[in-house]
Design a protein around this nucleic acid. Structure first.
Lengths: 183, 183
DNA sequence: ACCTAAACGCAAATTTTTAGCGTTAGCGGC
DNA sequence: GCCGCTAACGCTAAAAATTTGCGTTTAGGT
């Protein structure tokens, strides 16, 4: 579920915020597999049935929280040039997502395939790249293609994070970016 | 869990096979979100506690089944040339994985990050690419680099399957392969 | 053939999830 | 500002799923 709120103010919003805060709190201190809905409900001061009715089940709540956490709070850093902008963005992305909690976020988002969490999640990335692209245009640089950047820089990184088949050293990430630009 | 069986014969193996078969059967007729452990147990003719003790929980059982289903039963088709071999393999991979059940398989595998399901899963892909590479070597062709193939062909495809942000038309997949070879 | 321990079945205890129903409170119309 | 409508909540009981203890079966080795 995790449907759009019909009421966006007052008690409903407070509960949403409190539940989200509680989930994030719990994720810091314990593993995702030990978290239960009644546990969240108690710490958040609501009844379990509220959570079940609003989010459906635990995985959808976790996906909802994960998407909210991944929502960008600021534009990517402006380093003065397109190539270094992309590199900085990618390095930060890897920093956040390859950590234990980052991997859990990705898994939660992808765990509820029927919701729109995955699409939202990658729209954030797309939007960031769009920002970098427009910044490059404003500077008079020849901008990169966003879809290509996703295919050849972001996708490999996400793949290796998810499957855990390779160390994501900064050098490797930088190589992905530079290969993308020389091509 | 989904630990390696300490006993690989007799009753234990029969139960494993029967449970796997039952899960696959159920996945064909209903959505993953409606499947429960007691339901599987009844159809498979075992006690729920057996499943819980052996696999831990539903997501790990599903991951176990998914990995087993993804285990290659045959080498990729030999088309006579490296480029067309890779293209054929990729097209078949997309065919299998972008379907409703394929996406569910991927989600199940990635859903249990703590198990070794994800690693196993991408090892299968790696192994297939290795087969293609050795085949190319035997033909006297200049072989491709497997890691690069994963980064620039497989990863983009998996990304788009998981995030559902793009139609995976055959033309697009072919373009990925051909761009990989010209680079 | 016998021994040991892994794996299972059974059933009770616990926990989680669902569902009904009355109550609260956000939001729009007046 | 007051009122009506109904989404959203709390509470509780029922249903379902999960865990756990204990005795039994059975694979794998000696």
């Amino acid at each position: 579920m995790a449907r759009e709120m019909l009421r966006q103010g007052g008690r409903s919003a407070r509960i949403q915020a409190e539940v989200h805060r509680t989930v994030q709190e719990l994720l810091k201190s314990m593993d995702r597999s030990e978290i239960t809905v009644p546990m969240i409900a108690e710490k958040a001061g609501v009844t379990p049935s509220t959570i079940y009715r609003r989010w459906g089940d635990l995985s959808e709540l976790l996906a909802d929280v994960a998407v909210a956490r991944m929502r960008p709070i600021a534009d990517p850093e402006d380093t003065g040039a397109m190539a270094s902008d992309l590199e900085a963005f990618i390095l930060q992305y890897v920093e956040e997502m390859s950590s234990r909690v980052g991997r859990a976020l990705l898994a939660d988002v992808l765990g509820s395939l029927e919701s729109d969490a995955p699409v939202k999640c990658c729209q954030y990335t797309y939007h960031h790249l769009e920002t970098l692209r427009e910044r490059a245009l404003a500077r008079g640089e020849t901008p990169f293609d966003i879809d290509n950047a996703i295919d050849f820089v972001v996708a490999p990184i996400v793949y290796h994070i998810l499957f855990g088949d390779r160390e994501l050293a900064p050098d490797y990430c930088r190589a992905l970016v530079s290969r993308f630009f020389v091509k």
